[in-house]
Design a protein around this nucleic acid. Structure first.
Lengths: 136, 136
DNA sequence: ATAAATAAGGATAAAAATATCCTTTAATAT
DNA sequence: ATATTAAAGGATATTTTTATCCTTATTTAT
């Protein structure tokens, strides 16, 4: 998403191959994740020559939380740190409140940081999407 | 560890079976994790009748960070949010600083919260180690 | 219309995390 | 000494996550 954001300024498409290379992620795997993002309406795709993927909405309106939820589901946001099925104010796990503070911080960050924030740093060369030797 | 903390007041041993039941975790799997904690010096174990596991140091001196590191390794503390092999101030990933703030919060919490903090809440009935129907 | 390019989707495979089983080792009690 | 209890450790199995492969569907250019 960040790479596409650095590219889809005027609604230009970016091909799978290019995206996968840019983030040093296997093509087929990247394709599956893109399919998911398409299914969830964050990205549009077109087949055929000059086809590819494109972010649907303005990058300043897409927050990281949406992307994380689309790719990884909601466990990051609602799962219990100790793995309890039911972990609530009524029946909190032993680290519920300590953990809640951290999670609220994380959730808040993801809900207030939009793609533009992040992609701008890449465009200006302040940060990176790969190292040349990534782990995954 | 939290369950043992609620039990090993005067250096009493707690058996594997009892621990596994208390936290609703499979016995054999719990045993592997306990082996690890023993190897890392957080827990002592004795075999034979009346054998079992016991936390080695005062619970007020064992911080959650140590336990997490023993069980899950250090990726939680040092891993890059975007999966870059090398993610540093010099070569930061696109969410490095945003993520760093959250991680510092998490790390800080784990490094300042000790077992006693957490087990006391269980002892006084304010929080719980299982629900009856856990996920894992 | 046909060929070429490209994503979609289903089936499968590989790797990692989670979990189990069984044999061995050590401690205790008789 | 022997039997019993309980953890240690190695091998294996299951599940989940990560990744690949191959066929199909769609779009564009000729």
């Amino acid at each position: 998403m960040i790479y596409m954001a650095t590219r889809s300024v005027a609604g230009e498409k970016t091909g799978l191959k290019e995206i996968a290379e840019a983030i040093n992620s296997p093509q087929a795997f990247t394709a599956k994740i893109l399919q998911n993002l398409v299914k969830d309406g964050l990205v549009s795709s077109t087949k055929g020559p000059h086809g590819g993927f494109c972010i649907k909405r303005p990058t300043a309106e897409i927050f990281l939380a949406e992307i994380v939820a689309s790719i990884d589901g909601d466990q990051l946001f609602i799962g219990c740190a100790l793995g309890l099925e039911k972990c609530t104010e009524d029946h909190p796990c032993a680290v519920h409140y300590k953990f809640k503070a951290v999670r609220d911080h994380l959730t808040g960050m993801l809900q207030t940081t939009h793609l533009e924030d992040v992609s701008d740093r890449v465009i200006t060369g302040l940060s990176f999407l790969k190292t040349g030797t990534n782990k995954r």
